[in-house]
Simulated assay, not measured.
Amino acid sequence: MATTLAFDVYGTLIDTHGVSLALQGMVGTRAAEFSRHWRDKQLEYSFRRGLMQHYASFATCTRDALEYTCESLGLPLDVEQRQLLLDAYRTLPAFDDVKRGLENSRAAGFRMFAFSNGAADAVDTLLETAGIRGFFDDVVSCDEVKSFKPNPGVYAHFLRRAATPGASAWLVSSNPFDVIGAMSAGMRAAWVRRSPQAVFDPWGIAPSVTVAELTTLAAAIGVAD
């Protein structure tokens, strides 16, 4: 069976800080700080909802995190500004290395899926807008099982949907929690270390491979296989 790649979307393929341009017109020099707080809180809310088994969509986590960030940083954006930011989140750009990296992975013969906390329709729109939807056999959403990464059940759901055993499947993610979650669920995983300052969690679980960008992913997995 061909090796299957499960690509995380937000933060791995798609630059979640792509809202910074819109933010600059609203909060000026605090745009990067705002974007970082918003992303951190978005993930925190998904973790908490998953643990509580009190599911709400990733879009709801994103909206609630935006509300929190405005209050936390003392930047009371109006309703129209907040909606503009939420709309921008649906059309975020891909990182510069993504298209060529996906081309390399497709040429290597891998089966390729987008695997995301986001709802399938939102992810489809995001990937279409970024011009990369055609690389993927399908979109697998955690929304289908009403939970979030790194719940072991969502990785098991991916393996069922992709009709592949864990030994033949790789998660590709820039998020250490996602890499550790997938490996704990029996998959292999590639960590995309997009910044030299990024630190992997010291849990005694190392990524199967680490790459600085997606252009070298296919070669790294080929060596590991």
Results as ranks from 00 to 15, higher is better:
Gly204Leu: 05
Arg193Lys: 12
Gly131Lys: 00
Ser20Leu: 01
Leu51Ser: 02
Leu126Asp: 08
Ala122Arg: 08
Asp137Cys: 05
Thr16Phe: 10
Arg193Gly: 05
Val192Arg: 07
Val79Leu: 13
Ala162Tyr: 00
Gly181Met: 02
Trp38Val: 07
Phe47Leu: 08
Leu51Asp: 03
Val98Leu: 15
Glu67Ala: 11
Pro176Thr: 01
Asp225Gly: 13
Ala190Cys: 14
Arg63Leu: 09
Thr29Asp: 15
Thr29Arg: 15
Val179Glu: 05
Pro202Ala: 01
Asn151Lys: 03
Glu128Asn: 04
Tyr10Trp: 04
Leu127Met: 04
Ser141Ile: 02
Arg161Ile: 09
Val27Leu: 08
Leu5Ser: 10
Pro202Phe: 09
Asp97Tyr: 14
Ala56Val: 08
Met112Asp: 04
Phe136His: 07
Ala32Val: 11
Arg30Gly: 07
Ala218Asn: 04
Arg63Phe: 05
Val199His: 09
Arg48His: 01
Thr16Lys: 03
Gly204Met: 01
Trp191Leu: 00
Glu103Ile: 12
Phe47Gly: 06
Asp96Gln: 14
Gly134Lys: 04
Phe113Glu: 00
Gly25Met: 12
Glu71Cys: 10
Ser46His: 10
Gly118Lys: 06
Leu92Phe: 12
Ala2Pro: 15
Ala119Glu: 12
Gly18His: 10
Ser20Phe: 03
Arg111Ser: 02
Pro150Phe: 06
Gly181Thr: 01
Arg39Gln: 00
Val123Glu: 11
Thr29Glu: 15
Gly109Asp: 05
Ala156Pro: 00
His37Phe: 06
Phe7Ile: 07
Glu67Asp: 12
Leu159Asn: 02
Asn151Glu: 02
Leu66Ile: 03
Gly181Pro: 03
Gln42Ile: 02
Val9Tyr: 12
Gly204Phe: 04
Lys41Trp: 06
Ala94Glu: 12
His54Glu: 05
Asp201Lys: 07
Asp121Glu: 08
Phe113Leu: 04
Phe136Asn: 01
Ser195Met: 13
Gly74His: 14
Ser174Ala: 15
Asn151Phe: 06
Ala169His: 05
Ala22Arg: 12
Val145Leu: 04
Ile205Phe: 00
